[in-house]
Design a binder for these strands. Structure first.
Lengths: 346, 346
DNA sequence: CGGTTACATGAAAACGGTTACACATAATCG
DNA sequence: CGATTATGTGTAACCGTTTTCATGTAACCG
């Protein structure tokens, strides 16, 4: 049944298989009557051309590989990746491509990875990575496979990449807290080897310095983006002699962990501790008190990265670009701004 | 550079391209000296055979499609899917297959999905689904593509599928609570159209009935597996005149939401409310108080489903099987069993 | 109405591998 | 030592598409 080939369809429809192929590919030069008849035969017999044969003849697969950051456990756990994926999948669908994520691809030996990429299974790759030590950009470049990068990756400026302005985002977040009068503002950083951790911390420092506040090393913790690490970091901060009155947390997931730690101690947000996160995950906008945070246009980043990749695939003269998107401060309840306003201003 | 073909390699190595092919596929009948020489040329020139051509000649791709439940937003958000994926990816890697997840595949129109599956891009599919109304099993069967199912799906008993005994799991969880003396035990169900929601509720009912406790409809809420829905359900329960002293929650993610709601009210676990979850997510084992829960062997389920699929692909006489794996009660802090023991027994 | 152009179609050559088969050559044996 | 069997290698057919090119036919034109 499923073994029907284009020749069978041609024979049944009484045309040559070249004609069937033309019908399948919407080639203009085929008479409407013939076209319709062929389609009918195709549908009636549930024929679908075999991908492998097409790929071979076309020398492309219309499949785009999607690669997330290394650690498999974090991969599917942080909802932000779901949002990237959503943007990527959306554009792919719309442009007639397939976005494919290979499970366990990042756990493959390098040798295997090279072979996979060189096998031309993917026309191109969207890579999501901030890790400065990630060997993947290097591998991708060496295999000469077209790719775009979401996130920053230093050295290579010829690359098509997209990112947000992390420094400015963090600066806005922390400035918001200083403007509300906070003096002891903690910071929970991401892993030191990721560029955006670095940048967000830089924004934190900049905002404090601008208003003449000191950088207190005791108030700076390092997490790994997980809820758990936010939780443990906050517990650590609460054990200080002088705990912070506010926390800037480098991502929303860790902020959720912070809330957990605070509630456990019977402290309330924002009355006891004010919190600002980063990411604006759809999920966290629901938690009470709702989280003040820095919105990254995550879905759009995925979309643009994919769009650029496809253009790169389809036009020969495509110019590599580096796009930096703006972030946005979303004020909700966890920072105490509303409360503040009510008491002091209104 | 990347345009090297097997013929180029053959020419350079001074052999026929049939020989190169044999070397690539570890065919025994090639002299060791020749084999080594060919490998050297291959490596030196970084040659990798083109997937499309291989797939066409072999009539298979060694790619296994992975399909998660419908709703895209839940897809990557619930860590349990990461665990399934881990098991699937692991076995695939080990058996020389590639596990591929197509982003947005579940949002495709049915027509497209049919075409994708019939295009023979995937040798087979591992489907994760509990949804009784999911059209996918039907589609998969119609396309005659081999597949295995993780989760239950009523009607079709000829299918290769794997699941846990949800009724028994829930029964163990709730019996544990009744044994600890709880009389008002709430239940937070999953979406009604999923088989496992139904089954876990059935286990809940069975456990209560066994000790002669009534089923109080007020104590039964319906969530959608998300943390948020656990949170809102618990808020609802706390507004009752007589709130429950314990909650059986149909999955861990919702249980996390419950904790959130309780802390917000200043209540403590397990002193004020005891909780038992379901899944045993690696993530939740860290939260304090640590969660008593029912462990599903999730990674193993993914592995077995994949193993069975591959056997089905490689052996013609493979017999469809339905495997039900046992669950396990993991006692931690949230149910109060330890506390109970300390006070009353020790 | 004959000659040119436009259009629709079929035959055949790619695309880059795998593998059945034929055929040397080397090993084995009576 | 010649016949027989193993063993290694090359030739060519095949996998199922797309696409170039040639060709036959219809439309157009003066």
């Amino acid at each position: 049944m499923s073994k029907l080939t284009i020749k069978d369809i041609a024979r049944i429809a009484g045309v040559s298989y070249a004609t069937v192929s033309r019908v399948l590919n919407n080639h203009p030069s085929v008479r409407p009557a013939v076209r319709e008849h062929v389609w009918q035969v195709i549908n009636e017999h549930r024929y679908t051309p075999q991908a492998a044969a097409r790929n071979l003849a076309n020398q492309r697969t219309r499949i785009i590989g999607v690669m997330f950051p290394r650690n498999a456990d974090r991969l599917l756990t942080n909802p932000i990746f779901a949002s990237f994926g959503q943007g990527i999948g959306q554009v792919c669908a719309q442009r007639g491509y397939l976005a494919m994520l290979s499970l366990g691809m990042r756990d493959m030996e390098e040798e295997m990875l090279f072979n996979l990429l060189r096998s031309r299974l993917f026309d191109g790759v969207v890579l999501i990575s901030n890790d400065a030590h990630d060997p993947l950009p290097h591998i991708l470049k060496e295999t000469q496979i077209p790719y775009t990068l979401i996130g920053h990756n230093s050295e290579d400026e010829e690359l098509v990449s997209i990112d947000v302005d992390n420094i400015e985002g963090a600066y806005k977040a922390v400035s918001h807290l200083t403007a509300l009068g906070h003096q002891r503002i903690a910071c929970i950083k991401g892993p030191p080897w990721e560029h955006c951790s670095q940048d967000r911390y830089e924004g934190y420092v900049k905002a404090l310095q601008e208003v003449g506040l000191p950088i207190d090393a005791n108030l700076v913790c390092t997490g790994d983006w997980t809820e758990r690490s936010g939780y443990t970091s906050m517990r650590h901060l609460l054990r200080l002699e002088q705990p912070p009155s506010a926390v800037f947390c480098s991502n929303d997931l860790m902020a959720a962990g912070i809330l957990h730690a605070l509630y456990e101690r019977g402290l309330t947000v924002p009355a006891d501790v004010a919190i600002v996160g980063f990411d604006d995950l759809p999920q966290t906008s629901i938690i009470i008190p709702s989280l003040t945070t820095i919105r990254q246009p995550v879905v759009e980043m995925g979309m643009q990265a994919t769009e650029m990749l496809i253009q790169q695939l389809e036009q020969h003269d495509y110019q590599p670009t580096r796009i930096i998107l703006p972030t946005m401060l979303i004020v909700r309840q966890s920072c105490g701004a509303f409360h503040h306003l009510k008491d002091d201003v209104l």
